[in-house]
Amino acid sequence: MPSVTLTVNGKSHTVDIEARTLLVELLREKLSLTGTHVGCDTSQCGACVVHVDGVSVKSCAMLALQAEGTDVLTIEGLAAADGTLHPMQEAFREHHALQCGFCTPGMVMSAIDMVMAHPEGMTEEDIRHNLEGNLCRCTGYHNIVKAIAAAWPVMHGKELVAAE
């Protein structure tokens, strides 16, 4: 049986797996990191989004073996060791950007990725466009958009001015 070695949330793991194992299956079933969810089977919903080497990926559309040697960050790894939440987590709570909480981990991971990728600023339209790979059935997105806009200045340490 093949094995994969990777770092997840700062911790190195070597795991024996079938070649057909998806990254999300490795996280949920082998590493018991069940915060990353599976909401569809066509890579549409984004509930499974994690960061691999610093960028968002859909962990249901990546083999675990493809993650060999990578650094994976999941929702469980966002808060500081002392429990201090990431600004995006805080913003989601403050702005009621979640209801059932199922899409939330993927939403938060996508949101962090988009904010980091847009240091020049984002409009509401930019945020909505960048959420196109994440489905939420509860919130109507309104508060998710608000939360991301609120986290942007905290993450960048400057006021959010919409880029031209």
């Binding site: 949920r28 979640l98 909480g101 939330t104």
Partner: peptide
């Protein structure tokens, strides 16, 4: 009031059926 249940969901510590083994 901000929701009491949110902390576990934003931390990936929810307990959905498929999370149970």
């Amino acid at each position: 009031v901000r929701r009491k249940e949110d902390l576990r969901f934003i931390s990936g510590r929810g307990n959905f059926v498929d999370d149970i083994n």
